[in-house]
Design a protein around this nucleic acid. Sequence first.
DNA 1: TCCATTTTGTGAACTAATTCACAAGGGTCT
DNA 2: AGACCCTTGTGAATTAGTTCACAAAATGGA
Lengths: 210, 210
Amino acid sequence: MRRNISESTVRRLSFYLRILEKVEAVGIDTLSSEKLAQRTGTTAAQVRKDLSLFGSFGKRGLGYAIPQLASELREILGLDRTWRVALVGGGRIGSALFEYSGFRKRGFEIVAVLDADSSKVGQRWGKVVLSDIADLEKVLTAESVDIVILTIPAESVPDVLDRVVAVGVRGILNYAPVQLRVPGDVTVKDVNMVLELEALSFALSQTKGE
Amino acid sequence: MRRNISESTVRRLSFYLRILEKVEAVGIDTLSSEKLAQRTGTTAAQVRKDLSLFGSFGKRGLGYAIPQLASELREILGLDRTWRVALVGGGRIGSALFEYSGFRKRGFEIVAVLDADSSKVGQRWGKVVLSDIADLEKVLTAESVDIVILTIPAESVPDVLDRVVAVGVRGILNYAPVQLRVPGDVTVKDVNMVLELEALSFALSQTKGE
DNA sequence: TCCATTTTGTGAACTAATTCACAAGGGTCT
DNA sequence: AGACCCTTGTGAATTAGTTCACAAAATGGA
Ligand SMILES: NC(=O)c1ccc[n+]([C@@H]2O[C@H](COP(=O)([O-])OP(=O)(O)OC[C@H]3O[C@@H](n4cnc5c(N)ncnc54)[C@H](O)[C@@H]3O)[C@@H](O)[C@H]2O)c1
Ligand SMILES: NC(=O)c1ccc[n+]([C@@H]2O[C@H](COP(=O)([O-])OP(=O)(O)OC[C@H]3O[C@@H](n4cnc5c(N)ncnc54)[C@H](O)[C@@H]3O)[C@@H](O)[C@H]2O)c1
């Protein structure tokens, strides 16, 4: 049933879920594709098409039952479980991410932090004690890590990446501005803030000349 | 010449530029679409198609002259100038961004930081003194701000956003997990880290069941 | 029960993006 | 100069993604 799901569909599913959870808290129990579309900045047809890729979750004439659809979406997105996450790089961006509660709320639990700086190794951050990057393999295995977040300088990435992949981690979120090369069964997502600014720069430059 | 440039084309142009600058430093002075494609994870045809949307920058049989193409790309992307950026929200993620040198290197200069916390207002961060969010309009105007980065809690966003737009800023980079509603001449880019993790979660859940 | 109304689910039509494939241009070697 | 590579630039073909449009439920009121 689930072949060829596009990146944009997945992104929209996350949006739908976020809105459903927001609306559920208000006490509404049903929502039409039209309403969901308005709230997420897309069209009703798109909402229905996206959902229909995974099944039939609505009632004709009525719309979608919010708790049921939310639960379906959580299952589709794999959010009906906790993901064990390791943070590699406890610098500025790494520590901001560590303290952010939004990840845990969605089921992403940071169970290990690794760094190369010996003055950081051994520090206690909440429940986590910072590990030495030399112990990467040991820590990722011991903590059954599913996902690694890379917040280290670009030049350190290739080496660390190879080790992370070698130990069997198949999901990576990368903050360094480098193109990652990984085997086909490993998924990488990039967060590239400079790229977003450059896209803004492009958009602003375009309209200016009109 | 420049109508209907897709989001993905713009993203790739940024990648091309990054690689060109990296390769230029090594002393190579020409690069084929094939090589550029390999380094950026796309195809040679895609590289040529992307570039051809803006002009003819290559030499047949030889490839692209690196400094010239880099310069063309900088102009296309609007990176042949400095952009004046204001940071709204000097919290965890905001301060990490402020200290990050990667923005300035690309011509994005943070000329103002605004916060609502009176214990932060008046603090000096490098060359910048933190302003009170109450003075938003005054500061954005006085500093000729082109782009605003929002690193404030989601619930504060709508109000601040309206004020930012009203004062004439037309580029916004948003870190809060909310859908922004803006007039058509304003461009918004979102950095949504939870969304990326959810996309990873989806990808990992898919392959697991095979 | 029947009719009016609402909204889903989904093929078909359309639009956008990518890949193919090749003629034309440019360089080099003899 | 001519033969031989190499690589661009770009229409055409293909593939992917979105929007349209409507029959098929489901509900509620007369
Ligand atoms: N700070 C930002 O706002 C920002 C924005 C965009 C991108 N980034 C990217 O994020 C990454 C981290 O940036 P930052 O500002 O947090 O840098 P930082 O210097 O504050 O932190 C990097 C951390 O990584 C550690 N480290 C270095 N090499 C390591 C290795 N081999 N193994 C383990 N740990 C290692 C360092 O000890 C340090 O603690 C960089 O690639 C940067 O380009 C940062
Ligand atoms: N920290 C992260 O890693 C992270 C990750 C993803 C998304 N985000 C998002 O980024 C935003 C900021 O997160 P954070 O972790 O830096 O939070 P934070 O609480 O550390 O910082 C928020 C800052 O905004 C200021 N602020 C609050 N209301 C304001 C207003 N109306 N005007 C001006 N300033 C105001 C606060 O005083 C504070 O300094 C949030 O929307 C969060 O969801 C953060």
